[in-house]
Amino acid sequence: MGYPSVERRRVLAAAALGRESGIPGPDPGDGEPINAVAGEILDVSPHLIIIETPDGTEERLVIAPWAKAWHGGDTPPADLPVGSMVMMRTLRDGRVVERIWADTTRITGAILSISGRKDLTVELDCGPHRGHRSVVIPYRATGRLQVRHPKFEPGYLFDAIGIRRDGAGLALLPATSQPPYPARAVPDPPPAYAGLQPRISGTATWSDTFDEEERGAAYPMLERVDTGCPDVGASCAGLPYLALGSLLQIRNVCSNRSANVPVVACGCMAGRFCDRCVECDTSPRGRIAELSPFSYVELGGDLVKGCFNAQIGLG
């Protein structure tokens, strides 16, 4: 069965159960909204950045004096190379840039093979609908990555943040502490006592496997028959079942922002990670949502940190 109208599911479900169908987007009561802007750098100076957005328009944005940039390491914004793809956190309706991430990518998956002597090449299984991906770990980053990935061998999970260079992914920073179990042995959620919690806490991460400018989330707890995703439905966070098209209300506990984000993909890989986020406090175990970069940035997340402590409810 296809999904003729995944967005329509929300309207139909709300009508059948007589509830309000929520509206995707940030919660208006959160103070000044953050906008995420992406594009390719055409020119950059210490105070101004000119980008070409994915739909082909040219945008000129002011760089705030306190703005920081990341391109494999912290750099001044003016040093970013022309032609790199940037993701920016902006204020004032997308006019003032606060934070720039250039060519940033995230590589999440289960290790299939490791080869190489100095620079390591790791082949990863990123889930049934994302396929295999190969990533290079430069020699200078191997120690830093391996110390957070003690089981650096096939069958175990891998999660790193890095940059794209010449079409290949370069892993530079560990995005989490690797869970100690094999990728397929996800621990059971803690027993649920007396009904469902109205809000569930855990960690929210991001992934760059979404469409450009898409605002959405991958959610681990979907029915397998509804999604055609054989690996979905594992999670150690005690999540309720939802469907593609459901609206999740996600709150970033660290920055105190919340937004309604639709479920647009199955989070097979996110469900296998039973890790914590220590961004502002220690979160309970389990990834409860994997956000698209746009949603993640607009909720106040930092791409390089890799996660934020989150609470979800049904939007």
């Binding site: 329509r8 139909l12 509804d226 309720p240 079942y241 469907a243 049904l314």
Partner: peptide, 14 residues
């Protein structure tokens, strides 16, 4: 049904 999905404790048929 042309579409069917599960959300929480309900299954919907369209």
């Amino acid at each position: 049904p042309y579409d069917s999905w599960r959300e929480l404790c309900w299954r919907f048929f369209a």
